[in-house]
């Protein structure tokens, strides 16, 4: 790793101030992606602003509107534990990320800010129609994700909380890449009173996306059979040594049907 200073502010305001004063400063969440990136010398920050000591980024609560509000600094393990009673599908997704030690460090906010095209959380956030709250504003999930490793976040903007509407039924099914445990393809399905949302991760070169054709079919009939006639084109799907675009396109349909069948 190149050398850098590491700061541990205790408030969001102090973290924002540290990031504002220095173009080369970077925020550090749980570090489960950023630290390996630093080791590979793919990033060279002057200062890492660790968000790990900020108490206000922790906590899981229900707001007046019945949304499940999760602090961006909550670890995957923390979400798996604390969200289970309120939003089981989300808790189950968090409990399948990486491995136990990674889940004890990696955070919700870190995963979303990174927007890895194969990460699990983007599927839950987009599939739930959640709102990403930052130190300056609220961003709808449909606007937040803007392609592979790209989000609507400005330089120095910090995710503070994510507000999840709780669906009537939901499920996430991922086909895990056996070595990395990232999603080779993962599908999050959520049924609300007035709509169905289907979000797909791991498959597209544009990162997480909503599969609107499946949403329409499931809105008419929320059953795996309803997906029999719909498919996604292989065009634009990721092709790598783990799977071809055609294979991933096929997996999208398979995992979506499994998610619908398992939705509770």
């Amino acid at each position: 790793m190149y050398a850098f200073e590491l700061e541990r502010p205790e408030t969001v305001a102090a973290a924002v101030e540290l990031l504002k004063g220095d173009d080369e400063a970077m925020p550090l969440g749980g570090g489960q992606t950023l630290i390996p990136t630093l080791k590979a010398r793919l990033a060279q920050p002057s200062v890492l602003v660790s968000l790990g000591a900020i108490g206000e980024l922790r906590g899981v609560r229900l707001d007046e509107a019945g949304h499940l509000c999760i602090g961006a600094g909550e670890t995957h393990a923390g979400v798996a534990r604390q969200a289970a009673a309120h939003y089981p599908a989300l808790a189950a997704l968090a409990g399948q990320i990486g491995d136990p030690a990674v889940r004890n460090r990696g955070t919700l906010g870190g995963s979303l800010a990174n927007n890895d095209p194969s990460a699990c959380y983007p599927a839950a956030v987009l599939g739930s129609g959640a709102v990403v709250v930052t130190n300056t504003r609220e961003i709808a999930a449909d606007e937040f994700f803007q392609g592979m490793f790209t989000t609507d976040l400005e330089e120095g903007e910090i995710i503070t909380e994510v507000r999840f509407p709780i669906p009537q039924a939901a499920s996430y099914r991922k086909f895990a890449q056996p070595a990395s445990r990232f999603a080779l393809t993962g599908v999050f399905v959520a049924r609300f009173a007035d709509a169905v949302r289907v979000a797909v991760t791991g498959a597209s070169e544009d990162g997480v996306f909503r599969w609107e054709e499946a949403e329409a079919a499931l809105a008419r009939d929320f059953s795996p059979e309803a997906l029999a006639g719909v498919s996604v084109p292989a065009d634009g799907m990721i092709g790598d040594l783990h799977g071809t675009p055609e294979y991933r396109a096929h997996l999208v349909g398979v995992m979506a049907a499994r998610a619908v069948a398992a939705a509770r």
Partner: peptide
């Protein structure tokens, strides 16, 4: 449990 190679 954490991986001590992935925390400063």
């Amino acid at each position: 449990a954490v991986k001590s190679c992935s925390i400063f």
